[in-house]
Design a protein around this nucleic acid. Structure first.
Lengths: 137, 137
DNA sequence: GTATTTCCTATTAAATCGATAGGATTAATA
DNA sequence: TATTAATCCTATCGATTTAATAGGAAATAC
């Protein structure tokens, strides 16, 4: 299941793309426009800022803005920041690899083989989709 | 994340394929061979039996066996029984569809579009993989 | 009839998720 | 400089889900 965090994060990002102007987009506006609990959204945008995807400005007329062009923000990056590993098991994760201890041998593991295929096919979608694609109608 | 339930279930199924004979395969043997807590495994195999994937025999020399040929058991079926929906959000699920209430319009939802692509690519893997594929070395 | 195995229900401990609370920090502007 | 408005930060909480365990009922081989 996609977490609410990720879902809200994606919606917020597209909202920012669609409402970008010379002043940053405020959390309150996004929360209202996308039906997201504001305090929850605050923490999500903070995560995206710390990951370098968003920039922010404090104080009056402050808010959030994109650090890169929408067409340069890949879903691989966004999903890893918000949702964590793209792979369904740590032992096939490219960015969050972990050996699984209940598995004597990865190569012969049936689950391993299947999950590599799932990872690759999902990865293929994410690396060919940018925030610009998401934001277009 | 893939649940332990699904992981154990897949391992158990391949164990049954690899150790099939004229007598059913016992839970204890699978648990030992695949390092799975036996009581937990019992409930998983019960789920697979109720779904029609496994058959069972009670009492001495009882155990579990496949109801179909390994090559006829698709991962789509197994995954839906063990893990539930293949889609990451209910609003793009083929077998477990649910409207999402925080979304005024599915067609224009950016998350929706992306998740349909992920669903289709994952589905493509599962429908082209059988238990026989998993069980071969 | 006894041992062995699956079947069934209930419970529990731990982890995760979604959300909230309350205030600290920063910046615009009157 | 005081006020207002926004992000920033930490902590916490309740609900849900997950992984696992417990205990015994039902069926079957011998």
């Amino acid at each position: 299941m996609l977490s609410k965090k990720t879902k809200y994060g994606l919606k917020a990002l597209t909202y920012i793309v669609r409402n970008a102007s010379d002043v940053p987009v405020q959390v309150g506006a996004i929360a209202k426009g996308e039906q997201i609990p504001q305090k929850f959204l605050e923490s999500i945008l903070l995560t995206l800022r710390k990951a370098g995807i968003l920039g922010s400005k404090k104080g009056k007329y402050g808010g959030y803005y994109l650090r890169k062009q929408p067409s340069e923000i890949l879903m691989t990056e966004v999903m890893r920041v918000l949702e964590g590993p793209i792979a369904m098991v740590p032992c096939v994760s490219l960015n969050f690899y972990e050996k699984c201890h209940d598995c004597p041998d990865e190569v012969s593991c049936s689950v391993h083989k299947l999950m590599i295929q799932v990872r690759d096919s999902t990865l293929n979608v994410f690396k060919n989709t940018t925030l610009a694609d998401l934001s277009s109608n």
